[in-house]
């Protein structure tokens, strides 16, 4: 009898220890965001604020165009998703289903670019954007997502598994590549497109380095930029900073949890890309 319960009990004990360590910082964030400025430096430390105060939430919208920032992040995330998925699925179709000279070489070249880290190329990319007069524009922030080797690779692998019989039938009916792509390949790739959409959304929503380089006007900033700007100006107002952080985390959690239900297997792929 005892032995039967030993396994689950040990499991839950160990898993709870890890879960608590993961969640303490989030608990700290919520609790700090609900403190008044005075309570931030109270000793002994109040893990649960003695008095709930929304000062931080009020201030984050007062001292910064924070509502605008949320909208900017949403616009940039949605644009990134649409541009990345459209361009990548078109390229993937060509690599998977059209025969042309140099196809494998070109595909290998695209895979090779995955070895180039963003952190080593943000300066040259910025210089190009400057030449194109795209600094401080959303176009400049989202334009590089038109090329994403990982998305092309994933979609191409998937499209190769779609039977040629479908295409042959469509060709017999007089369909061209455009019709085949839009009516056949895109719907058949829906699960992988959905997964890639979640990854692209998270990438864009959380990105820091690239928007930091590109956007310098407060009105155009994304959430991570606004938070880092605030932390420079109000370094000790942790109630304000934690309120802002919480607001930035909630939308992405909702997107993830909503997505998780529909394609759990796909998010394993999401885990691989981060």
């Amino acid at each position: 009898m005892l032995k039967r319960y030993a396994g689950p009990v040990l499991f839950h004990a160990a898993a709870t220890v890890i879960a608590v360590m993961v969640l303490i910082p989030f608990f700290w964030m919520i609790s700090t965001s609900l403190k008044s400025k005075g309570a931030l430096t109270a000793v002994p430390i109040q893990w649960i604020p003695e008095e709930i105060s929304f000062e931080g939430y009020r201030k984050v919208f007062e001292v910064f165009p924070f509502a605008r920032t949320i909208l900017n992040s949403a616009i940039i995330a949605v644009l990134t998703v649409s541009i990345r998925l459209t361009a990548a699925s078109m390229a993937a179709y060509a690599f998977a289903k059209i025969r042309f000279r140099g196809r494998e070489t070109l595909f290998a070249l695209i895979l090779a670019t995955m070895m180039i880290p963003q952190q080593a190329t943000f300066i040259p990319l910025f210089l190009v954007m400057k030449e194109l007069d795209l600094v401080n524009t959303f176009t400049g922030v989202v334009a590089p997502s038109i090329f994403n080797a990982f998305a092309i690779f994933m979609l191409r692998q998937h499209m190769r598994t779609i039977s040629d019989a479908y295409i042959d039938a469509a060709v017999m009916d007089g369909a061209g590549h455009r019709t085949i792509f839009i009516r056949l390949m895109v719907p058949l790739s829906a699960p992988i497109l959905a997964t890639l959409a979640v990854i692209a959304f998270m990438d864009a929503w959380n990105d820091y380095l690239w928007p930091l380089v590109m956007l310098t006007e407060p009105k155009k900033m994304t959430l991570p930029l606004a938070l880092s700007k605030l932390s420079g100006q109000y370094a000790t107002d942790y109630n304000t900073l934690m309120a802002g952080s919480l607001i930035s985390i909630v939308p992405i959690l909702i997107v993830f949890l909503a997505a998780q239900k529909h394609f759990r297997a796909g998010l394993q792929v999401g885990g691989l890309k981060g």
Partner: peptide, 27 residues
Amino acid sequence: LFYIPVLTSWVAGALIFKSILSPEYGG
């Protein structure tokens, strides 16, 4: 639960740790 920090932006995560690692007033 284990995956939530991965979803959090690094800026928010870094701010949380800056606060919780405060020598006198941190958790």
